[in-house]
Nucleic acid binder design. Structure first.
Length: 962
DNA sequence: CAGAATGAAAT
DNA sequence: ATTTCATTCTG
């Protein structure tokens, strides 16, 4: 809505980011190639790339049905102005934003789905339902068949949507390249994203470079950073927040990186030092003109982490990028830096002498002072914060291991006390990091950074306490860290709380328990951790707030679960009617449930009120993310005042954090959870699911990671985007879903059509057929067949001769109830068979030619004789072909119980039933042969196709013979 | 993780 | 003309 203003944009971006992260988390690297180290054993690497959502590009806009292309464009531009970037930068900003989103993580957006995929997505469930036993492959085949059968008209919707989707996608990612393979230096800075493609490799360790090398060079920084992170911990495990932080860090360090990446050290000390240096350098360098505000300087960096990061790529971009980036991430990063800076300060003052910093020392000192003050405040106010800062340090370890470990301590060193403390923290952190996943870090970090958009620097009345003892803070932090490391977040959390404040009433467990049921898996864990972390942070100050948050989370969880369940049930019914706006319902449900949840939870909802805006935010999740954010922001801003002094700040932070979490971490968690759920779910529910439509569970919710939505359908994406997604989903859902019956009919109709006699095609089909092109249909089919023959390398014949009947049967089966097909089949006369055969051929599996590599076996010698291997293969093929049909038939028979497999007979006497088919095949063969001959002018070397053809030839011949 | 399918894009 | 990769998920 109107919200889509600058801020919203940032929020969107964040969302996007989060999405990406989530995806990353989920997917881990899909390593097709080298599972190499990085890959997670994760079962499914599936999601490498983040899924792009069309709405994303629009952000807040609704995804009106109309072609949004134009609209989108318009919108984008306005939005583009990230923050308040001046005119010139806008475009870049947009780009940067996009890039940022994608690149930083390296994740590249996934390709938009094509019409067929959409179709598959939408119908797969149906297919599965009908054929529970079928594995996906089979389902895919059937789907393909269906798709083939579909009338153009019907297809059109899908194609249109696909197109739309694609367009939107392209808008969102201007430079997107489908095939990143060759990552040549993309000229467009933004395009660099594509360059980043490594997603797979992403996780790979620095050393692995060989493949990546090409790409790697391009993405020096970005690649480096991620790697670092990964190195520290599994990316998959890492929390989105951590990622964000990293981004921030990167941004901050970008300069430094550019200057001397080499210097970076793994150790926290160094990190700190670096940070200091970075800050200093940044301030002076980057913002000479601008106010020395640390925040500002930072801001810019975060904005274009990528750009800056990859100075090599686009040096110029960096400056421009700055303006754009003000995002939560940024803030977080700032926070972190500030905190660190504060710690470091003392050291810095002394250390400043270090060569690098010397010149800017003065400035730095000033900055530091400022930072310090801030830090102090924060520390004092929020012990947690300190913790966060410490947590931040772990990030530093992220620094690429491969990075030459920096000349250690160059500047740092200094105050023994501080140093020691720091060192300890670092060590611990490092340890923690190693042991645990980074998740912990991320959350903490997040909290740390969470400052509201307002300036991080002086939002609160700063109270400077003369010297705070970092030690205490550190202690708490350490405790947490350790706890985390151990894996007992909750405990850690509790401890922290206790220490910081006695507010022990927190019920860490509550939220978890809920989540637990859903997904026992690791993902859950992550979620739990995150949550706890959040709590801990929040709790730091306002116990109530914390409680509120937790509550909300819990509620959300509950709600989600319930909702899901409800939805599921509901969905079944609704399924057929196309998609319907579930949202209202869902919301309602959520609301009610939330209430219920609140009651159930240990903490009374009352607490929430104190929290103020938060509660709403939590509840909102289903609604708009933006709204949530806005609320949060408001809460942060206003809330503070309303509430009381600084708490507001904290609350704000908490809120922000939540938001972040909800957006990013949450999403990821959710996704994971979903996955898990799905599995379980699927098992139980199997059939009810088809409708993706309803799934629309309000995604984003509040900070609850737990929310796992079970929606089996494919909510992941939707969840991430929330409302946007919903819309998208709606659209998707709106796509016509065809009942199997339809297909059956069609298939039959097709048969009819095929039959020479049948003057009238199927009713349903008729129209479209007519529409499509009367002549074209048959012809096309025939042509196709021919083509196939030509192209088909592997087993064109199979289908042609044998399969026909069986395939047909299969087809019909799939579509219709069991009985029918059989009958059809059996009775089917020669004509029918022929027709069927045709169809089958067309539709049949393996339309696509085999890949070369696969094909190899087929190679034939010039004379036509098959090489031994080939021969075998050929045999196999033939057998397979025959078998296949048989099997299918048999299966059908079994399933349906009817029918005596004619196929066996056929096998034995291949010729019999197939007269017609054979005929066709012959004709086709002839055609093909002719074609080939023509083509074959150059016999010099057999092309794959040729070889294939040759290979096929024999089979065909055999058919003919028979 | 391969792989079934189709399509769009890139090479 | 080929190759990538998008989605989904079982073996």
């Amino acid at each position: 809505m109107t919200k889509a203003v600058a801020d919203p944009s940032s929020s969107l971006i964040q969302h996007f980011h989060s999405l990406i992260i989530s995806k990353t988390m989920k997917g881990g690297g899909r390593g097709k190639e080298p599972p190499a180290a990085g890959d997670v054993g994760g079962k499914r690497p599936k999601r490498k790339c983040l899924q792009w959502h069309p709405l994303l590009s629009k952000k807040a806009l609704d995804f009106s049905e109309e072609e949004e292309e134009e609209e989108e464009e318009e919108l984008e531009k306005p939005q583009a102005p990230c923050g308040q970037a001046p005119g010139p930068g806008t475009e870049q900003c947009a780009v940067a934003r996009e890039e940022t989103e994608e690149d930083p993580t390296e994740q590249r957006a996934r390709r938009p789905m094509n019409a067929f995929l959409l179709f598959c997505k939408r119908h797969r469930s149906l297919v599965r339902q009908e054929h529970p036993r079928l594995d996906n492959r089979g389902a895919t085949k059937i789907l393909a068949d269906w798709w083939a059968v579909l009338e153009p008209k019907e297809k059109q919707k899908y194609t249109d949507m696909a197109k739309e989707y694609k367009d939107a996608f392209m808008k969102a990612n201007p430079g997107y390249k489908w095939c990143p393979t060759t990552n040549k230096p993309v000229k467009t800075p933004p395009s660099c994203q594509p360059v980043c493609n490594h997603r797979k490799k992403v996780w790979s360790f620095p050393s692995n470079a060989p493949k990546d090398s090409t790409t790697a060079k391009k993405v020096p920084k970005s690649a480096g950073m991620p790697q670092l992170n990964f190195a520290m911990a599994d990316p998959t495990k890492m929390g989105g927040l951590s990622m964000l932080l990293l981004a921030g860090e990167h941004a901050l360090s970008a300069r430094e990186v550019g200057v001397a990446i080499t210097e970076k050290t793994l150790q926290g000390k160094k990190e700190k030092e670096e940070e200091e240096e970075e800050e200093v350098s940044v301030t002076r360098e980057s913002v000479p003109n601008r106010v020395p505000d640390v925040s500002k300087t930072r801001v810019k960096s975060p904005l274009s982490p990528m750009t800056e990061a990859s100075p090599h790529l686009l040096p110029s971009t960096a400056p421009e990028a700055k303006p754009c980036g003000q995002s939560a991430l940024f803030q977080l990063a700032e926070m972190c830096l500030a905190s660190e800076a504060g710690k470091i300060q003392p050291a810095v003052s002394k250390s400043q002498e270090s060569p690098s910093s010397s010149p800017s020392v003065q400035h730095a000192a000033v900055v530091n002072a400022e930072v310090k003050s801030e830090v102090k405040q924060e520390m004092v106010d929020h012990p947690d914060f300190t913790h966060s800062s410490s947590s931040h340090s772990p990030l530093s370890p992220l620094l690429p291991p491969h990075f030459p470990s920096p000349p250690t301590s160059s500047s740092l060193s200094v105050t023994p006390g501080n140093i020691t403390a720091m060192a300890q923290s670092d060590v611990q952190n490092a340890r923690a990091v190693k042991k645990k996943t980074k998740k912990k870090d991320s959350p903490t970090e997040a909290t740390a950074t969470n400052k509201p958009t307002a300036k991080p620097a002086a939002p609160c009345p700063s109270r400077k306490t003369g010297g705070e003892s970092p030690a205490t803070d550190l202690d708490s932090v350490f405790c947490t860290i350790e706890a985390v490391a151990k894996g007992s977040w909750t405990e850690a959390e509790v401890k922290v709380r206790k220490r910081s404040h006695d507010g022990g009433n927190v019920s860490p467990g509550s939220p978890k328990k809920k989540s637990k049921p859903r997904t026992p898996k690791t993902p859950l864990k992550g979620a739990a951790n995150e949550e706890t972390a959040t709590k801990g942070e929040e709790s730091g100050n306002p116990a109530r707030l914390h409680s509120a948050s937790s509550l909300s989370e819990v509620e959300n969880n509950n709600n989600d679960d319930d909702d899901d369940d409800n939805k599921e049930e509901e969905e079944e019914e609704e399924m057929e009617t196309a998609a319907i706006p579930v949202s209202p319902k869902d919301e309602a449900v959520d609301m009610s449930e939330e209430e219920a949840g609140g009651g159930s939870t240990t903490q009374p909802p009352q607490t929430v009120p104190s929290g103020v805006p938060e509660p709403p935010a939590a509840g909102v999740r289903p609604k708009d993310e933006e709204a949530e954010k806005d609320k949060v922001l408001e809460a942060m801003e206003t809330g503070a005042e309303s509430r009381g002094s600084r708490k507001s700040e904290r609350s704000c932070k908490g809120a922000l954090y939540k938001t972040l979490v909800s957006e990013g971490m949450l999403t990821s968690l959710r996704a994971n959870i979903d996955r898990g759920k799905r599995c379980a779910f699927r098992a139980s529910d199997h059939d009810a699911n088809w409708q993706e439509e309803s799934c629309v569970v309000p995604p984003t919710g509040p900070p609850n990671p737990k929310k796992l939505k079970k929606s089996k359908s494919k909510d992941e994406s939707s969840q991430g985007l929330g409302k946007l997604e919903e819309e998208f989903e709606k659209k998707f859902n709106s796509l016509p879903q065809f009942s199997p019956m339809t297909f059956d009919k069609k298939s039959t109709t097709v048969v009819k059509k095929k039959k020479p006699d049948s003057p009238i095609p199927a009713q349903e089909e008729g129209p479209k057929a007519a529409k499509g092109s009367s002549p074209s249909q048959k012809k096309t089919s025939f042509h196709k067949i021919v083509r196939k023959h030509k192209q088909k390398k592997e087993k064109p014949n199979v289908r042609e001769k044998v399969a026909l009947p069986s395939d047909l049967a299969l087809l019909s089966d799939s579509g219709t109830s069991k009985v029918k097909p059989c009958t059809t089949l059996a009775p089917a006369g020669p004509e029918a068979a022929g027709a069927a055969a045709m169809e089958t051929l067309l539709v049949g599996s393996q339309k696509r030619k085999a890949r070369k590599n696969k094909i190899t076996h087929l190679v034939r010698t010039a004379d036509g004789s098959v090489s031994p291997i080939e021969e075998d293969k050929a045999k196999e093929l033939t057998q397979e072909q025959e078998k296949k049909p048989l099997l299918s038939q048999q299966k059908l028979c079994k399933d349906q119980g009817c029918f005596e497999a004619p196929s066996p007979e056929r096998l034995d006497t291949p010729g019999a039933p197939q007269d017609l088919p054979a005929f066709f095949s012959l004709a086709a063969l002839a055609e093909v042969a002719a074609m080939e001959n023509v083509h074959r002018g150059q016999r010099v070397s057999l092309s794959d196709t040729q070889t294939k053809e040759l290979a096929q030839a024999p089979v065909l011949i055999s058919c003919a013979d028979q």
